[in-house]
Design a binder for these strands. Structure first.
Lengths: 181, 181
DNA sequence: GCGTCCATGTAAATGGTTACATGATTAT
DNA sequence: ATAATCATGTAACCATTTACATGGACGC
């Protein structure tokens, strides 16, 4: 998803500043499937402003820098909904870890184990974070409930798979000695 | 993973041409987690050649254009193995579909159902393809076995989740009428 | 005839991230 | 003191993908 659509999507759920949009996609339960950096949010927001899809309101805050709060216009909402009509591109699951683990059987056993431990910990951390987030606000609309539970299901599947199948990699001491690739 | 590492990785499993490397990552059981296009493979291969990490051999074929088959050098293997040492970046699961479905409860019911049907079909197709690929050659080294079974586990988790939870989105006819976002 | 697979390569276009630039406040 | 959080914005940099360029063989 391009930065403009991502910004518009966040604003559909409520007014926000660029900084807040970044937080929304970085921390929240949607971080599993989407990402945007500030370097693309700010230009996107200005482009949306030029196109009349959002309006701004500069909000002074004490003890903090002023922030620019953006609001979607009616036109912006229409454009967003129309953008949802096209057929979505295929999901992309990219993993450096799995590239490395594809050669796991020729890695030093200690490294292999460290890698698997770290991988499991990382997913367990993400699962716990998402679960906490779901517990914190259980009453979100169906769409978002579907997506965040989806995330939980994927995290769980990964954790279960790795825990149950890491032996495939760790039981190959003999093979490693034979220098098989 | 950058194109050069991806090429080197494919060549670690056997000599190949650029075209064949693309096929390896596009069709095979590794397509779930990695991707490279020809536009980045050919320049990558030439860079590896310049660095002495691979060698080429032009192979004439009858009825077909000649192909350049690349082979990893000892230095190439060493560089590749060293490249595996760094700590891998986090997994990235990006999904336009889930972005759209996050607004699924305000989509026209017919569109919503079509989207979910298509999504399920797509994952079922990928699962079947991967399963067939696994059946076709069951005896791969542990590393690759771990990765491709990982893919299968993820596909299965997605299919199960969507089948069992699509009702979350499809049961909101009432809400849609109330124009809730 | 038309599309697809084989096969390589370059260049333009794309779209992002990272780093830079600035600066106040608060927590450790 | 030092780092982190809040807050915006620009520009350099990076790596891709897409399209272009070329061309024979094979199936429909």
């Amino acid at each position: 998803m391009d930065a403009k659509t991502l910004c518009l999507g966040a604003l559909m759920l409520g007014d926000a500043s660029g900084y807040e949009i970044r937080k929304f996609y970085e921390d929240g339960p949607y971080s599993a499937f989407h990402a945007v950096s500030l370097g693309s949010i700010y230009p996107a927001l200005n482009a949306l402003l030029t196109d009349g899809l959002v309006t701004v309101c500069e909000m002074a805050q004490d003890g903090r820098p002023a922030k620019k709060v953006y609001t979607v216009t009616e036109q912006g909402k229409a454009v967003f909904m129309r953008g949802l009509e096209g057929s979505p591109g295929a999901d992309r699951f990219r993993s450096d870890m799995l590239f490395i683990l594809a050669f796991g059987h020729v890695l030093p056993p200690a490294r292999r184990t460290a890698l698997l431990d770290g991988y499991l910990e990382e997913y367990q951390r993400m699962r716990a974070e998402l679960a906490a987030c779901i517990d914190a606000n259980p009453d979100v609309p169906a769409g978002r409930r579907f997506v965040r539970d989806f995330g939980l299901a994927v995290y769980e599947a990964v954790i279960t798979y790795v825990a149950e199948n890491r032996h495939i990699l760790e039981d190959v001491v003999d093979d490693a000695v034979k220098e098989k690739v």
